[in-house]
């Protein structure tokens, strides 16, 4: 589904990703861990197509297509979803209006039946409930004044509605209380199936108790320096990143 070879990327002429390789197959969950500033969020931005994140070398294929040529919105409609570490507040655009625009354009692109207004409303309310967000959130501005945890749950709610093929979750667990963590993990697990893949960026092995990964990778200084199964997360928790550096 996702094939990344020797990915190098710059932000404002600063080289951040330095030869990253990753293969993700449908149905898999990959966890990415790594120290602050190692390039985890940058990786998500590069995959999603953020302006100013310049790929200088390497290739990224998503379902066989070179997505590096595509605008961010096209990648999204192709089924790539990024849950932000810091979701953006957009006052004046209601969550509902935003969600409707997003779902309509995505479903149209994917050749799916459009939702009629009633079905859409019903679904949106249902999904809000699923991530434990009050329905009133739909009327508020996008993420406007949401608490940190509410923003994260809103990201998951969007993910569930959009039914993407590949979900990149950038520290969706940080800032969540224990119950919210459970809600988010349940949301993700409910979406897991043979056709959908996840890349879960996290600092805490705890999340991986809820969302059990198939692989764990350590990103350090713009490269994946170690990969393993879910036990690698436990080992990291115990020994810290300096243990990797010494290898």
């Amino acid at each position: 589904m996702l094939s990344i070879k020797n990915l190098h990327a710059n932000v404002e002429d600063k080289n951040i990703l330095k030869g990253l390789n990753l293969e993700v197959k449908p149905g898999e969950v990959h966890a990415i861990m790594g120290p602050n500033g190692s390039g985890k969020s940058t990786f998500g931005y590069v995959l999603s197509g953020r302006e100013g994140y310049e790929v200088t070398e390497g290739e990224v294929k998503f379902d066989g297509q070179n997505i590096l040529e595509m605008e961010a919105d096209e990648r999204a409609r192709e089924g790539l979803f990024l849950a932000f570490q810091y979701p953006v507040e957009i006052p004046g655009v209601s969550n509902m209006e935003f969600l409707k625009a997003s779902i309509d354009t995505t479903r149209e692109y994917q050749g799916k039946e459009p939702y009629d207004a009633v079905t859409f409303m019903k679904l949106a309310r249902e999904k809000c409930q699923q991530v434990n967000l009050d329905q009133n959130f739909l009327k508020r501005g996008v993420n406007e004044g949401f608490s940190g945890g509410e923003k994260k749950r809103n990201e998951i709610m969007q993910m569930i509605m959009l039914e993407p093929k590949l979900c990149i979750l950038d520290e969706t667990d940080s800032g969540l209380d224990i119950d919210a963590l459970q809600v988010v993990a349940d949301g993700v697990n409910a979406c897991r199936d043979d056709n959908r893949a996840f890349i879960v960026v996290t600092h805490y092995q705890r999340l991986l108790d809820y969302i059990v990964p198939d692989y764990v990778h350590v990103l350090s200084d713009g490269k994946i320096v170690k990969s393993g199964g879910k036990e690698l997360a436990l080992e990291l928790e115990e020994k810290g990143y300096s243990w990797i550096d010494k290898l």
Partner: peptide
């Protein structure tokens, strides 16, 4: 604009919404 784009909304429409 970027945030809206990552949800499938094209640049032009994102700018219009904002």
């Amino acid at each position: 604009v970027y945030y809206l784009q990552t949800r499938g909304i094209d640049r032009q429409k994102a700018k219009k919404m904002l």
